[in-house]
């Protein structure tokens, strides 16, 4: 788990709990906001199996080794930690498109991909007697429906071509490892640990490689024009927002006042605000000006300068006791986005 070093900074102290929650895709507004501040929101949902005990133990070891330094606002990466992180990166596989992970339906996409390769492979040999790879009922239903709609004689040729097309853009030894993770006709997958015996990578690296290339493959198929397009699209979330947040945001976009949204959706005012903060973090074109008045901007500009991490809500309360925490956080989010776009 030395890759956890990637998520720390030599200049900005960071709270490990935020990092853990982001990797796990635990979405509270506070986690998401600090994830935005740390610049790690692309890594949402990249480690959905992360165990707290294991995470805490790794952080503890890193502190003992002096790779991380404890400060008031969190942990900072030391020079030794930075060297270690760079040395680690040279030897290990690093996920290249982390932002795809939070867009995929997990663990469904993995099961469907495994099933797709197996079913098409067995079809290519006209074989109907085989042990189906472990998969949920949902994954099997998806594949069955897709198969009934798109079955054609050269299914194998088509999937083979798509895979070749996709993998030729990749490092060829990574592609070799990736394809060994699939079972099909008279071909049995190797486990990541087994592949690691003859590789410079560890089992964990190969698992990351499998997830990284797998999610990119789905993205590739979803953007393409092949018969696998609709299947791949069904594995992608339509929106990055949680369902309930999305409903609130749609009403907000339609111009409905917040109090009315609360009533319509039977939500407390605090929950509506949280939904909007989450939307503000994820939606690039979020309209901040509808919630922050020109007077708010004047006040915030006057009070808050410099490092956004250090802004405190108490300051605004002293100047204007009526100003809400939501407005303060919205302003912080907007300024963070401005900072990131520079």
């Amino acid at each position: 788990m030395e890759e956890l070093l990637y998520f720390f900074s030599t200049t900005q102290p960071r709270r490990p709990a935020v990092i853990r929650q982001v990797l796990l895709n635990k979405r509270t507004v506070s986690n998401l906001f600090w994830g935005l501040r740390y610049g790690i929101l692309d890594w949402l949902a990249t480690y959905p199996q992360l165990q707290r005990e294991q995470f805490d133990a790794v952080i503890k070891t890193m502190l003992v080794k002096g790779w991380l330094i404890e400060e008031k606002q969190g942990l900072r990466l030391s020079l030794a930690g930075l060297n270690q992180s760079q040395a680690f990166e040279k030897k290990h596989y690093r996920i290249t498109k982390p932002f795809l992970f939070s867009r995929l339906k997990t663990p469904l996409w993995h099961e469907v991909l495994q099933l797709l390769v197996q079913v098409v492979s067995e079809t290519s040999y006209q074989n109907k007697q085989y042990y189906v790879v472990n998969s949920s009922m949902q994954a099997r239903v998806i594949i069955k429906q897709w198969y009934q709609k798109y079955y054609c004689k050269n299914l194998g040729q088509q999937l083979g071509n798509q895979l070749l097309e996709f993998l030729k853009q990749m490092n060829s030894s990574d592609a070799d490892l990736f394809m060994q993770l699939f079972s099909g006709h008279k071909v049995i997958a190797k486990t990541a640990e087994q592949l690691a015996y003859n590789s410079t990578y560890t089992g964990a690296d190969i698992e990351n490689l499998g997830r990284d290339l797998g999610s990119q493959l789905i993205d590739f198929l979803a953007k393409g024009t092949s018969i696998f397009k609709s299947l791949a699209q069904a594995l992608l979330k339509q929106n990055l927002l949680a369902q309930s947040t999305l409903e609130t945001y749609k009403l907000y976009q339609a111009g409905i006042p917040l109090a009315r949204i609360g009533k319509m959706r039977n939500l407390k005012a605090g929950t509506v605000s949280e939904h909007l903060l989450e939307a503000a973090i994820f939606i690039p074109e979020f309209d901040f000006k509808r919630l922050l008045t020109p007077q708010d901007y004047v006040l915030f500009n006057k009070i808050f300068q410099g490092e956004i991490d250090n802004w405190r809500y108490e300051k605004i309360q002293q100047a204007d006791p009526q100003s809400s925490f939501t407005k303060f956080r919205l302003y912080q989010i907007e300024q963070s986005k401005v900072e990131l776009s520079r």
Binding site: V120, S121, L159, G160, H185
Partner: peptide, 11 residues
């Protein structure tokens, strides 16, 4: 990987 794909899909 090319050989695996050929084998998987009878190409």
């Amino acid at each position: 990987y090319r050989r695996i794909i050929e084998k998987l899909f009878n190409l």
